[in-house]
Design a protein around this nucleic acid. Structure first.
Lengths: 317, 317
DNA sequence: CACGCTTGATAAAACGATTAATCACCTCCT
DNA sequence: AGGAGGTGATTAATCGTTTTATCAAGCGTG
């Protein structure tokens, strides 16, 4: 039902090869005939593609995206940006959710390749190692990860938030992450730690190990600011602090990461740190297509992050 | 580089047709030879597919999903469920984000089809009409929408929440939606309205038209419960109420819809209503594949919703 | 005038799988 | 013994596009 190359060819009394040549600008065709063919193709809304072209060229024009968990609000934004950028350069986007674990991650890659992906963009779950991948591959992780291709500069993001908090005269801080298996979270906290002036002190809490009570305890021992590695962690801490009758930001400042959907509408509104996902997506797509089409490699790049100050952080009382 | 049908064939000294027959269980092949072929295919990790099969059969084994907005936290859950169900039946999943407007929606469908989708699953933006679609199509909207294929029973969800609130002796309610252009939101509020006992009163506020101040006003005039059409709306209202020194749930009860990620960790935790997205996804995929493979049609179906009572709703003071 | 060169187009093979048609061989029956 | 019928495999066509090799025609030149 969709128009085929041969339809255009026969309707103009030329051969299929000629039409193909015109549309790809490759062979030698007279300008007049080329115009006729182009306008006829236009008229019928024809564009080469489909399984025929894929079979011949070995490429499908589709990229595969493996995400650890679509229900985690951070990743859909990445997916949206990646889909947008890949559409902009004429590629489709297949998705697969690895549901966190490494086996599914490998399976997800296999599924995408079987469905015809020309290359894979992988957002790994907590640095889950992948065996290896028979296709062009780009990894969006954190700059300190060895095979990272492109990502936000999480370390620098950490320095940003600590700079913000110390400028508010906070001297005793708490850094809170979910899991220290996550390279992203480790790097964020490393940035925080390294940006800490010598006259300040900080304690790091991994919720997975110590639970939120450790954070409350730290505040009761005098900490006046909490920097979490994620807005979701910050939201959970806010609830726990409220239960402990600790007021944010009056008694303790609180910040997150990623500017998730609720950060700007909760009370207090949440100070957070973001990166331009579209920039990351653009670089990732560019790097992947370079691999697929065999053009030049770009070096791994890190996108700088930006602080968004809101009402959850303020000066010490 | 990946194994081909012909590799298996030559390595066993048989013809490609025989291998194809064995793997699809179609022709007549001796059981012993069939076993040999199957084990050789297994050994090499071969599975038929790719452009060759797509070209011959006219099907790619890939479905296309059009979402209005991946950054809205409701849709990724749907996407995740759909991807999971389509993977379970051996189909890949292409995504496209229509960014809300109807033109992009049409363009997104075209892109997906060009990338080889065998059929389309469409989650329309606020009932945005689509011209028509040359491929099998399934629409996930709301049961009252004329061409809806499968969805949650939003109307019944509305009755659920009002039942909950009136059981708590609330007599004066406020129903709050974002936009009355949304069929889903209209149906949710219709259910609320129809479930309202005669001895109760309710006022409907569309935020797009009147803004959140109208809700605060209604509460000051005596309303003791607010039912929002979305958790995100509820969260915004919570902030506005807090600013107006109205305590939730002590002075007014508040409920949402969809159990978004923050609903269970905010304070108060948010009473909400959900549907089983996996059930919706399963039906949608089943209906689409039935269309693609030409098997029998199922009638449109509505998945019942479930109430999740939390601490944001309570009895009248 | 015949040769070589350029120009403009075509014929045909190839990509990897499916499938209808065909074929060789064997057995059974009359 | 000779056809009918069944079995197990192969041959060849086909899907839509790209690309290499080929071909015909025109033109200037030695």
């Amino acid at each position: 039902m969709p128009p085929r190359l041969i339809d255009i060819a026969t309707s103009l009394g030329v051969s299929a090869a000629t039409v193909s040549n015109v549309l790809s600008g490759k062979g030698r065709v007279s300008p007049e005939l080329a115009d006729q063919i182009r306008s006829e193709a236009e008229r019928r809304g024809y564009a080469p593609g489909g399984p025929g072209r894929a079979l011949r060229t070995g490429r499908s024009g589709v990229l595969g995206l493996v995400l650890p968990d679509l229900s985690n609000p951070l990743f859909p934004r990445m997916a949206q940006a990646l889909e947008h950028e890949s559409a902009a350069v004429g590629y489709g986007m297949l998705i697969a959710d690895s549901h966190g674990n490494a086996r599914n991650q490998q399976g997800a890659i296999a599924r995408l390749l079987k469905s015809g992906a020309d290359g894979i963009i992988l957002v790994p779950r907590r640095g889950a190692q992948l065996e290896d991948c028979a296709a062009p591959l780009v990894i969006i992780d954190t700059p300190s990860s060895p095979d990272n291709t492109v990502s936000a500069d999480h370390y620098q993001g950490g320095t940003l938030i600590v700079g913000h908090l110390t400028r508010f005269n906070h001297r005793s801080l708490v850094f809170v992450g979910e899991s220290n298996l996550s390279g992203v979270q480790r790097d964020r906290i490393a940035g925080m730690r390294d940006a800490l002036p010598s006259y300040c002190t900080a304690r790091t809490v991994w919720l997975e190990q110590e639970g939120p009570a450790a954070v409350v305890a730290a505040v009761k021992q005098g900490a006046t600011a909490i920097a979490a590695t994620s807005d979701l962690v910050a939201l959970r801490l806010l609830a726990v602090l409220e239960d402990a009758k600790i007021a944010v930001p009056q008694q303790v400042s609180l910040s997150g990461f990623d500017d998730l959907i609720f950060a700007s509408v909760m009370r207090p509104t949440l100070t957070t740190v973001i990166a331009d996902e579209f920039a990351i997506a653009r670089n990732a797509i560019k790097a992947l297509i370079a691999q697929i089409e065999g053009t030049d490699h770009l070096p791994p790049s890190a996108i700088p992050m930006t602080l968004i100050p809101r009402t959850s952080t303020t000066g010490t009382p």
